[in-house]
Simulated scan of single mutants.
Amino acid sequence: MTRPQEISVVDTDLELPQEGFIELEGYIDNIKTTKGALIEILHKAQEIFGYLPRDVQLYIARKLGIPGVEVFGVVSFYSYFNVKPMGKHTISVCMGTACFVRGADKIINKLKDNLGIESNEITEDGLFSLKDVRCIGACGLAPVILVDDKVYGRVKEDQVNEIIDKYR
């Protein structure tokens, strides 16, 4: 398989570090084959930049020789990927059926009140981001929230403040 043509580091209106694009380019160049590697590359890009803004998505598309809409489709489908900067701690509330019927809507409303933000926003101090996600696959523990990679199951409204305070 031939490799996509070399792409220079993109100019961007955002304050994205050029070193990040150089690191990402090196990562992509060292993959044996880029066919089927889009998700792996997106994970690396998010690790480097902290999120996947439009310029990073377009850079990846150009580098892989695929349409930008294909990259955006993958980014928007998976709740793991973020298109906006995130807080130091990401709180994800499962809104899948099992969690919802067991009170996830009350949990997320309590989090919104406590943090003073809506879903997909970041607190003013940059400490927390709040996300509602489709399903995290822990239905037996419903309702479930994740703080970063830590799972909290069978969460009750009165536990929300205590959980958040651990991360302040």
Score class of each variant (00 low, 15 high):
131 K>Q: 14
80 Y>A: 11
138 A>Y: 09
138 A>D: 12
41 I>G: 05
35 K>Q: 12
30 N>M: 11
37 A>Q: 13
75 V>E: 05
70 E>T: 14
138 A>H: 12
102 R>A: 03
162 E>K: 09
140 G>K: 12
50 G>I: 09
18 Q>F: 01
71 V>S: 06
45 A>W: 07
143 P>E: 03
4 P>G: 11
69 V>A: 15
158 D>P: 01
101 V>C: 13
7 I>E: 06
56 V>T: 02
29 D>Y: 02
71 V>T: 00
53 P>E: 06
89 H>L: 02
130 L>C: 14
157 E>A: 11
56 V>L: 00
38 L>N: 04
96 G>F: 01
53 P>R: 06
150 K>H: 02
163 I>N: 04
44 K>A: 05
102 R>M: 11
119 S>N: 12
23 E>I: 06
14 L>M: 15
135 C>T: 02
163 I>Q: 07
43 H>D: 14
158 D>S: 10
17 P>G: 13
54 R>S: 00
120 N>T: 08
10 V>E: 07
43 H>M: 12
110 K>V: 06
162 E>D: 07
165 D>T: 08
25 E>Y: 07
149 D>V: 05
80 Y>K: 15
141 L>A: 10
168 R>Q: 11
17 P>C: 09
107 I>Q: 02
1 M>T: 14
73 G>F: 01
124 E>Y: 10
18 Q>L: 04
141 L>R: 06
8 S>H: 14
45 A>M: 06
19 E>I: 09
105 D>W: 10
64 L>E: 03
40 E>Q: 13
73 G>A: 13
101 V>N: 05
165 D>Q: 11
146 L>G: 07
159 Q>D: 14
52 L>T: 03
12 T>L: 07
3 R>C: 04
108 I>T: 05
